[in-house]
Amino acid sequence: MLRNARMLLKTFSSLGRQFSTTQTSNSRVCVIGACGNVGQALSLLLKRDDLVTVLSLYDLKKAIGMALDMSHVDTNSEVAGFEKIEMLPKALYCADVVVIVAGQPRKKGMSEDEMLKQNSGIIFEVMPAIAEVCPKALIAIVTGPTNAIVPLAAEVLKTKDAHDPNRLFGVTTHNVVRARTFISDELQVDASIVKVPVIGGNSPCTILPVLTHTKPKFKIEDEDDALPIIRKVREAEEQVAAVKGDQGATLVIAHSVAKFTHSLLMGLAGKGDPKECAYVESAVTDSAFFLKLGKQGIEKNLGIPDLAKFEAELLHELMPELKESIKKGIDFAKKTKK
C-alpha cells in the first residue's frame, strides 16, 4: 500500500509539472552516448536547462547509474537511463530532440576515412530507430567526422523514408564559441556580446569564420589581419588534444552543444528568435550557415553573408575537400547495408 501511494504521488507530481502554469515548455531530449566524456557534461547542462522537461540518457552501459545520480540534481526535469541496444527505442520514445555524441574522438594521425569507419556503426544503429520511434524529432549530430557523418545519416534516413533536411543538423557551435572567445580577447569586450558567422565544415581546414561580419566590428585591413584568428579557430581542437591527450576538447563541445540544443528547444516552443550556425543540407551550397530555428527545425536558411575577396577565395579553396567528405558519407551509406 505504501509503495502504491508513493507511486501515485510521483505520478501526480509529474503531472503537476506538466500542467503547471509556470511550466512553459514540455520538451523531451534524448542524449545518445550520454556516458562519454562529452555526454556526461552535456547531460548535466541539459538537466539544468529550464526548457527540458524529460531527459533520456542512453549508452551501452552505466546510463542507469548516471541517471540516478543526476536525478538528485535540484531541477524540475525528469531523467531516465537506458542501456544496451534493445533499450534504444524506449530511450527515444516521444523525443523532440535527439543529440548524438557517441563515438570515438579523432586521435592524432587518424584519417577521416578511419574515423568514419569507426563511428559509422552508431549512425547505422541509431537512425533507423529514430525513423521508427520519433521520426519528427530534431537530430543534432556531434559524432565525427561531421562533414561525412551527417550526409551518411541523411542517406540512412532516406532508406526509411524519414529524411527531412530541416530536422537534421551537424553541430558546429563550438567553432562559433571559439571564434567569439578569440575575438573578444582581441577587442577586450565581453564574449557574450560578440557575434560572428562561421561557415564551411567542421574539419580544421574547412572551418571559416567570417570576420568581416563580426559584431562589434573587428577591424580588418586585409587577409593578414584575419588569418591569425582563422588559424587559431581551426587549430584549437588539436591544441587542446595536445595538452589533454586523446580525450580532446570535451568541455567546450558540451557547452556548445547545450547552447545549440537550447536554441532548438526555443524554436520548438516558439520562443524568441533563435539563430545558430550548423552544418546542414541546402540548395545554396554544401556548407554551414546561420539558421533561423522554429517549430519545424530550420525555419529559414539565412545563407552565406557577403564575403570579402579573401574570404570568398578561402571558401572556394575549402569546398573541394568538403564535397569529397560529403561524397564519402553518401558512398559509405550506399555500399554498407545493415
Rank of each mutant, 00 (worst) to 15 (best):
N119D: 13
C134G: 07
G121L: 06
A148K: 02
P105F: 11
V142Q: 11
V156G: 00
E125M: 07
M115V: 06
G121Q: 09
Y93C: 07
M110V: 08
L138W: 10
K117R: 14
Q104G: 03
K136D: 15
A140F: 05
E132G: 10
K158P: 00
E155S: 13
E132F: 06
E86R: 08
E132W: 04
E86Y: 07
I141A: 09
P105H: 09
F124T: 11
G109L: 12
V150C: 04
M127A: 10
V150N: 03
P89G: 08
N119C: 11
A129W: 02
I149N: 01
V156Q: 01
M87H: 13
L116A: 06
I100M: 13
P151C: 10
L88Y: 03
M87L: 07
F124S: 15
E83G: 08
T146H: 12
D113H: 10
C134L: 07
Q118K: 13
E83R: 07
V98N: 02
A154D: 03
L88P: 09
I141W: 03
N119Y: 05
T146L: 15
P105S: 11
N119H: 07
A129R: 08
P89C: 06
F169V: 04
I122G: 01
V142A: 02
A131R: 04
P151V: 02
E125Q: 15
V98D: 03
M115Y: 03
Q104V: 10
R106C: 09
V150P: 05
E83H: 09
A140P: 00
S120L: 02
L116M: 13
R106M: 12
A162Q: 01
V97M: 07
V133W: 07
Q104D: 11
K90F: 12
A153Y: 02
K84M: 09
I130R: 06
G81N: 11
Q118M: 12
Q104E: 13
A153N: 03
L92P: 10
P89W: 05
A154V: 00
D96T: 06
E132T: 14
I85Q: 12
A137K: 11
R167V: 04
H163T: 00
D113T: 14
I123K: 03
S111D: 08
P105G: 08
Q104W: 01
I139A: 05
A137I: 11
A131I: 06
A91H: 10
R106Q: 14
A140S: 15
K107Q: 15
C94I: 06
Q118Y: 06
A148M: 05
R167M: 12
V101C: 12
G109K: 12
Y93F: 12
A95I: 00
N147F: 05
L157I: 02
N147P: 04
Y93L: 14
T146V: 14
L157N: 03
P165D: 14
K117P: 00
P145N: 09
A140H: 09
I141P: 01
K117W: 04
A102N: 05
A137M: 10
Y93R: 14
T143A: 11
K117E: 15
G144F: 05
F169W: 01
A148Y: 07
K136I: 02
G81K: 11
F82D: 02
F169R: 00
G121T: 10
A102T: 02
G121W: 08
D161T: 03
D96Y: 03
L116N: 04
A129M: 13
A131T: 07
Y93Q: 15
V126T: 14
R167I: 03
A131W: 05
I130V: 15
A153G: 10
A129T: 10
L168S: 05
